[in-house]
Each structure stands twice: as structure tokens, then as C-alpha cells.
Design a protein around this nucleic acid. Structure first.
Lengths: 102, 102
DNA sequence: CCCGTTCGTAAGTAAATACTTACGCTTACC
DNA sequence: GGTAAGCGTAAGTATTTACTTACGAACGGG
């Protein structure tokens, strides 16, 4: 559920889209896609890793980031669960109304 | 996608859970479930409505809030789309590796 | 063994955010 | 019309957040 906190920032969402599309990327490659400074992106990457959305792997001097789809799925499950719970309540409410007005 | 911005706050997520579970509630009923002041919850409700997550309806002096499941579904779709895109890239990468090492 | 690349961290700052108390506007009811 | 209930808004404040520049550590290549 912490993925929802982490994905509040639009820059971090763009990083996720980048990695979902292009596969693995190192820090400078990611930072190159943004107008912000490299340290700014580095901090975002740290937040994303902390939230379990990304994982890092070292390769020489590089740090290679990749997506952790399980965390996205977890957040998505929470959203769909809430939506389903509500529609279930709504259905029950409507059938109750139908019974009241036969 | 704006739902992800809005759902970053844990209090707002609790409000969503509340409405998903209990159906429609008015402002004071929602505020009663939290330790924060009523104006604080009122502001959160405004943010949720602004983000399309909730809708309001007036009934006398009361404002009755209900969930808008479409917005949650939209955010959930974005999450699952990213996860799927990444797993597709991953699969393509693995099959490419298999072809390289026959 | 030095040097360039890669990258995170430190320190500082401006802006956004979540909260508080105080106030005012509706609507309902007698 | 007066009064109470319900609720949003204003104003102010403390904390968080996202950014910047400056610096330092780790690895690889000549």
C-alpha cells in the first residue's frame, strides 16, 4: 500500500512508465530523460526503492533499476477492492429499494 | 490518474475505505470516525471530490458523500498496465536469452 | 596509480501540505 | 423571525517535500 504514497509524485510516475516500457535502466540514463538535476532523480529513485516499487542492482560503477511489478499489483488490488466493495453495497441498496416498491 | 495524487494521504485512503464499506455518509459522520477536527476532514473531502474520487449530494443541511468507483478503476488500470508492460518486456528478454544459449 | 565515470549524500531553501481555531452561510423546525 | 444543526471557508502555522549546488566514495581503464 505504500506504493500509493510513493506514486503520488508525477516525476516518479514517469520513472515507472519509463522502466515499464524500456526495461532496465541505470541512474544516469533515467536522469537524462528529465529536466531536473541528477541528484533530484537519484532521490526519487531512492524513494521508489524504499517503497518497494523498484529494485536496484549494481554493475560496476552503475546502478541498474528495474520495476517490481508485485508492488504495483498490490496497490492496484487495493483500488479495485475498494471499488468492488462499493458497487456491492450499491447493488444491495438497489435490490432493497426494488423490494420496497414492488 | 489524478486519483493517485489524491490517495497519497492515509487519512484520505481511510475515508475511501469507509465509504467503500458503509455506503453513503454525510460529512459529520465521516469526521466522527477520525481524531482530527471536522474542518480538517472537510478539507480532505474537498480534495477527494476535486480529484474525482468522491461525489457530493445535498440533502437538507447535510452533504452526503459517495464513492466514484470509475476514478479508482482508472488509477488501478494505470498500475496494472505498467506492471503488464514490464512483465512483457521481461518475457521478451528471457526468450531472447534462451535463443542465445541453445 | 592516477583519472574519469557513475552515483549517492549533505546542506540549504522555497513551496506545498495538513492541521488548528474562528467565523459565516444555509437549511430545518418551532 | 429566532434558534440550532450541519458544513464549508479564512487565516495562520508547523511539518513535509522536492529541488538546488557542493562534495565524496567506489569502481574501471589507461
Amino acid at each position: 500500500m505504500s506504493a500509493l504514497d510513493v506514486l503520488a509524485d508525477p516525476t516518479r510516475r514517469r520513472i515507472v512508465e519509463l522502466l515499464a516500457d524500456g526495461g532496465e535502466l541505470n541512474a544516469t540514463a533515467i536522469a537524462g530523460r528529465f529536466a531536473s538535476s541528477r541528484p533530484a532523480i537519484s532521490q526519487h529513485l531512492g524513494v521508489l526503492v524504499g517503497g518497494g516499487v523498484l529494485t536496484v542492482r549494481r554493475a560496476g560503477t552503475q546502478r541498474i533499476y528495474r520495476l517490481e511489478p508485485a508492488s504495483l499489483a498490490e496497490a492496484g488490488d487495493w483500488l479495485s477492492t475498494q471499488a468492488q466493495r462499493w458497487t456491492r453495497v450499491l447493488d444491495a441498496l438497489e435490490t432493497a429499494l426494488d423490494e420496497d416498491t414492488p
